[in-house]
């Protein structure tokens, strides 16, 4: 465990909490992609299947449970909460998630560390996490006007990925046998997807004005 890894996990948790808090406080989920949230839940569930029999550390187990619980709560708010579900941007959130799930599943069947059910599901979750933000980015692009909290959410998620890259570099330098190229490549793709968004986010922040994405 190193400082980059811990920072990354905390940033990840913060991003989810920012979103939950926004929904809870404003009773609105405008601008948030339900597709992306459902994909993240799928990522967590397929990756953390081993929660019950592969105990690594209390740290890992607590984070796994918290990630699954908090993202389930976001989905519950968006689909079931009487006030919140009416604010969901259904007409703009039309990304077909099978376009992401099917290629990730096929790739996980072909490119994996070991051909076993749990290893393939784990690899699938790594690939899916890399692209799960796409429906959210498309929704932001369509609605143009990004409110502060939604902007912060995507920014924190991007920062979390950047810190994971630092963690890998650190581990590669300090642990003799550490190598995980499937995770590294997926992580690079995932972080790359945020770069365009980061540019506009930082520009808006520098000029301290509302974040607006170009058409």
């Amino acid at each position: 465990m190193n400082i980059f890894r811990v920072s990354a996990d905390i940033l990840h948790l913060l991003s989810i909490l920012v979103l939950l808090l926004k929904i809870h406080a404003t009773k609105s989920c405008a601008g948030i992609s339900l597709k992306t949230q459902e994909l993240y839940l799928a990522v967590f569930v397929t990756r953390y299947l081993d929660l019950f029999w592969n105990f690594h550390s209390l740290y890992n187990s607590v984070f796994k449970v918290v990630y699954i619980a908090t993202s389930s709560m976001i989905i519950w708010y968006m689909k079931r909460h009487r006030g919140v579900k009416q604010t969901y941007d259904k007409d703009h959130d039309t990304f077909r998630y099978l376009f992401l799930i099917v290629p990730c599943a096929v790739l996980a069947l072909i490119v994996n560390g070991r051909f076993s059910l749990f290893e393939i599901l784990w690899t699938f979750s790594i690939y899916l996490e890399a692209v799960a933000i796409l429906p959210q980015l498309v929704l932001l692009q369509r609605t143009k006007n990004v409110d502060n909290l939604t902007g912060n959410y995507v920014f924190l998620l991007g920062l979390y990925r950047a810190f994971y890259i630092l963690n890998w570099i650190y581990r590669y330098a300090t642990e003799p046998h550490y190598s995980a190229w499937i995770v590294w490549l997926s992580g690079l793709v995932q972080t790359g997807l945020y770069l365009d968004f980061f540019y506009y986010y930082l520009q808006a922040w520098k000029q301290s004005k509302k974040l607006q994405l170009p058409s």
Binding site: R5, D9, H12, D50, N54, H56, S57, N60, F63, K64, Y67, G113, R114, W122, Y164, N167, E175, H177, Y178, S179, A180, I182, V183
Partner: peptide, 10 residues
């Protein structure tokens, strides 16, 4: 070691 190592990450 090797391929399984990233399993200790979240």
């Amino acid at each position: 070691t090797g391929k399984g190592e990233a399993h200790d990450e979240l």
